[in-house]
Design a protein around this nucleic acid. Structure first.
Lengths: 145, 145
DNA sequence: TTTACTGCAAAACATTTGCAATGAG
DNA sequence: CTCATTGCAAATGTTTTGCAGTAAA
């Protein structure tokens, strides 16, 4: 439930080290409700310590992903976005115009996926349901007859 | 329904031209049940005409996407894969080990998405449901007590 | 003839990596 | 002290772009 706690135990389990850089990235992720990309995380982390490199941010995010602390999504289709691993799975809608991201849950989708997995004998590790289109503010509102 | 036909009409509607390169890419897409990436499409097209450049393949795929003839997916998380735009929407499971892609349909997912769109006032253009995990052949088959 | 399109090579990105220096345990 | 981790800069892989030449219409 607590990111930091999960991180601490992972540290102890494996031969990892709790570096300042990792703590800062963890901090940014924890206090950010948004879906940040590596660059944005780097910016925020650099505000607290200008010496941290983008490469380290990438390495840290890869580690956190491996530890199950964060999830990566391809929201804008181009580069990756990261968020803290959710307890309840949720999905994303991205507005093609204003880039706003709307999150939503759906037990129904979960059921569909579980049904498929059972039927096909699949072990599903990740589920990404990503919608794109236009939010109410950005809708062309086409009303052509 | 017919890719080539759709292409022809798009050509006439806009000021586009039916070049040999585009016809070849169209041909590859049409006769390939797989989810090819730009590089693979380039290889196949080059088998018929070695002069075609990768840049042209990318430009052609971008055009086809804009025309609604093909859909792009991030299946392996890294680079894009393309397939002919399906009449019935379907979704993808990718095996993390053997990279095999399994397609599946789900009217239920469609309903969920439509429900969400109505409730939130969204205009949904694209829906990507992408699963990853292990197929029956590649499953670790963990049976730990 | 007109100008959309292509090939090429270079640029633009996001991301990864080799290596010497650093610092957590 | 030891070795996991970092910073840097260079490498990588994918996709895009500028421009002069080519070819549909």
């Amino acid at each position: 439930m607590n990111l930091v706690t999960n991180f601490q135990s992972a540290i102890h389990t494996q031969g990892l080290r709790a570096t300042r850089q990792r703590q800062l990235v963890l901090d940014v992720l924890e206090h950010s409700p948004e879906h940040l990309d590596a660059e944005a995380i780097h910016d925020q982390v650099r505000a607290k310590d200008p010496r941290i490199s983008l490469a380290t941010v990438y390495r840290t995010l890869a580690l956190f992903k491996r530890l199950g602390l964060v999830a990566e999504h391809s929201l804008g289709e181009d580069h990756g976005h990261f968020e803290t691993a959710p307890n309840a799975p949720h999905y994303h809608f991205t507005c093609l115009n204003c880039k706003r991201v709307i999150e939503f849950e759906s037990p129904t989708v979960l059921q569909v996926v579980q049904g498929l997995a059972e039927r096909e004998g699949l072990q599903v590790i990740e589920t990404h349901l990503t919608l794109s289109g236009y939010c109410p503010e950005c809708r062309p509102d086409e009303e052509a007859a």
